[in-house]
């Protein structure tokens, strides 16, 4: 009965894959529910009385709530801005013929390759000279360096998939290109726009380095906050994991919603 045996080994493999993926999250959540005494027990305990104290302390005493709000404001605004700038550009790349189009396309896409530290150094000096360190607007603009390319990439693709006949018909009736985009193509391209918005949100929400370098307190983002717990001895592991859980949960929800397109978005610029 080789087939039943191979079936069982397949089930076993799948269970192993799922557990390996999920276990760190299980450990994160359970640690966040431990008191400091329980969290520091060696060897670690698996059964204990859960408490929400870490969440309460982190959110309301240490100001994690405010950093989460900062992250939310920044991620939402930069995503909106990336869409406003990126959707018309994507439409032009998909529909118009012009010289240098290919070069422009590559320039947009290669931004994905550049290490953020290359930009973090000059951003810091410029922001300091302009007096905009620790301001939301600084991060909102800077996150465009990776959000705009992802929006252009996904939405251009989506516009290309819309039959050209529709444009043609509208143009014969005297509609301007802008009207064609807004009234005819954009409603059909909505799935792509939504996915690119989810990506833009996830990338901005997850970003650490710019947040670390360009904010202090006012505009501090949640990942930068989580890192600041790591200073000194006797680290508050429960609180760190509670903050981590709060950061990760929205991202995971969005990622699961867009799971089908996630791979496509991450291979941006490398798969046609």
């Amino acid at each position: 009965m080789t087939s039943t045996r191979s079936l069982w080994s397949q089930i076993a493999l799948l269970v192993v894959i799922i557990s390996l993926c999920v276990f760190p999250f299980y450990w994160m959540v359970t640690t966040s529910l431990k008191t400091q005494v329980v969290a520091l027990e060696a060897p670690p305990v698996w059964l204990f009385e859960p408490t929400l104290d870490n969440y309460r302390a982190a959110l309301f005493e240490d100001g994690v709530l405010r950093t989460l709000i900062n992250s939310l404001i920044i991620a939402v605004c930069t995503t909106a801005l990336a869409l406003v700038l990126g959707v018309p550009a994507a439409f032009a790349l998909a529909r118009f013929e012009f010289r240098g189009k290919k070069d422009l396309w590559f320039w947009f896409i290669t931004n994905r390759m550049v290490s953020p530290i290359v930009l973090a150094l000059p951003f810091f000096l410029i922001a300091r000279n302009l007096g905009v360190l620790d301001k939301h607007i600084t991060l909102i603009l800077i996150y465009l360096t990776f959000n705009l390319p992802i929006v252009i990439w996904i939405v251009t693709d989506q516009f290309r998939g819309i039959p050209y006949d529709l444009d043609e018909a509208a143009r014969l009736e005297g509609a301007s290109q802008f009207t064609i985009m807004r009234k005819i193509c954009l409603p059909l391209a909505m799935p792509g726009v939504a996915v690119s918005a989810i990506f833009s949100f996830i990338f901005s929400w997850n970003e650490l380095m710019f947040g670390l370098v360009l904010t202090r307190s006012e505009a501090k983002t949640a990942p930068a906050m989580a890192v600041s717990f790591m200073e000194g001895y006797n680290l508050p592991y429960g609180k760190i994991m509670a903050t981590s859980t709060l950061i990760v949960i929205p991202v995971l929800i969005f990622a699961l919603i867009a799971s089908k397109q996630l791979v496509r978005g991450l291979t941006m610029g490398a798969v046609k």
Binding site: P24, T31, N206, I240
Partner: peptide, 20 residues
Amino acid sequence: LSLVLPMATTYAVVGLLGQV
């Protein structure tokens, strides 16, 4: 679906998880 989770996780959080 579980494969989607690791790659969406905030990189900074992966490091913190590593510490713990």
